[in-house]
Amino acid sequence: MIYLQLFFAFLQVGLFSVGGGYAAIPLIQSQAVEKYGWLTLSAFTNLVTVAEMTPGPIAVNAATFTGLQIAGIGGAAVATLGCISPSLCLVSALAVLYGKYKKNTAFQNVLQILRPAVVALIFSAGLRILRLVAFDEQTIALQNANYIGILLFAGAFFVLRKWKLNPILVLLMCGALNLLFYAIFGWI
């Protein structure tokens, strides 16, 4: 019974969260906190923090965590399955359709116009994160600038462009260097 509830609660999260992680947060809250009371609000807030700090989609993280709390490993598996099953059906249908019509000229011509928009979206997502890295606060002002962050970004961008370094290695080096900088220059 509890497995079914977990499955259907997270099925709704998977089905109605369009556009990635931040769209899923209010849905998870309404199911796990408000409707079923599986998590307290403070546990949920911690969960969001941890989900942001760990790899993986926020919905999968939340499903795993809530399932574990309520019904152990089985619960985690059922909740995660619920959360990904709408994608499994809908996106698989998209994949098959795409494979079928990919060579169609009219379809290709329409996609030609979509692609520059996607490039712009990727660019915008990167700039948003960069803004977060470069300025600690919401307002963009010189006194809020995080010079270490800007330096790390510039270095990482350079080695990626110039030497095509493995991005995951770059990521780990950025994390280690940030820790090192703060250890050397003191805690600010």
Partner: peptide, 9 residues
């Protein structure tokens, strides 16, 4: 620190 790397990637 890793966030700076993410922006760069």
């Amino acid at each position: 620190g890793m966030q700076a790397g993410v922006a760069a990637i």
